[in-house]
């Protein structure tokens, strides 16, 4: 994936807020990427644009030689449907659907989904799949959200502060799960966080501040999530 001069400006009353300024970077398939930055640094904006949920003011994104930034709304919907998997900070599951149904909600509309039971087994919810979100802990809900994103069999898994609402232990287990998915399913995983230690597990780290990418480096030896502490 290639990103060139990506910018996003918001009109807020009379002021123009530059949420993203000329971001340029490249990601290889199968990488585990962590975007690190304080709140308001533009990382969510970047993630939203990469995921086809928002359009940039200028710049280009290429995914496997396809220019995403040229897409119209219809094509963006299709792109989200087939290429992208989202994991949100607050899980955002449908309250009146069970775990498995929440996953099926996503896979029903995409081309070649993975086996749902297998995915749920892999995220450790084999025996909880018929529970409703309200009957599950935050960690379990986030696992459902990850299963929902993975089962679509996307090219890119985008995670917006996936541990933000979770306690330390659960957070680590979620990170381990993401790492496992990155390795087992060979998915490109992109995690945004303000939590610096998480960067240690990444293959590639993008540091952001005030809408700019201030650092872009590869970890020589990414550590196992179990070894992260904060």
């Amino acid at each position: 994936m290639k990103v060139r001069d990506l910018s996003k400006h918001y009109q807020m009353g009379e002021v123009i807020v530059k949420a993203l300024k000329d971001a340029t970077f490249e990601i290889n398939e199968g990488e585990f990427v962590v975007i690190l930055g304080p709140s308001g640094s533009g990382k969510s904006t970047l993630l939203n644009i990469l995921g086809g949920m928002d359009k940039p003011t200028k710049g280009q994104i290429y995914m496997r030689e396809e220019e995403i930034t040229k897409y119209d709304d219809k094509q963006l919907t299709k792109y989200r449907r087939d290429k992208i998997g989202f994991v949100f900070q607050f899980y955002n599951l449908m309250a009146n659907l069970t775990a498995i149904e929440n996953v099926e909600l996503a896979t029903e509309i995409c081309k070649n989904p993975l086996n749902i039971d297998e995915v749920l087994e892999n995220v450790g919810l084999g025996n909880r799949k018929n529970h409703f979100p309200s009957q599950m802990s935050g960690g379990e809900q986030q696992r459902v959200a990850i299963a929902r994103a993975v089962a679509k069999n996307p090219l890119l898994l985008l995670c917006d502060e996936p541990t933000g609402a979770l306690d330390y232990k659960t957070g680590i287990s979620i990170l381990s799960l993401l790492s496992k998915i990155n390795k087992d399913y060979k998915k490109t995983v992109m995690v945004i966080t303000h939590n610096a230690p998480i960067a240690k597990m990444a293959d590639r780290v993008l540091k952001m501040r005030s809408g700019e990418i201030i650092d872009d480096y590869m970890n020589e030896k990414p550590i196992d999530p179990e070894g992260i502490e904060w």
Partner: peptide, 16 residues
């Protein structure tokens, strides 16, 4: 609102 946002993120279109 949020659920609709999620549905859209999952790739459901407006008409659906």
């Amino acid at each position: 609102r949020t659920s609709i946002g999620v549905l859209k993120a999952l790739g459901y279109n407006n008409i659906q």
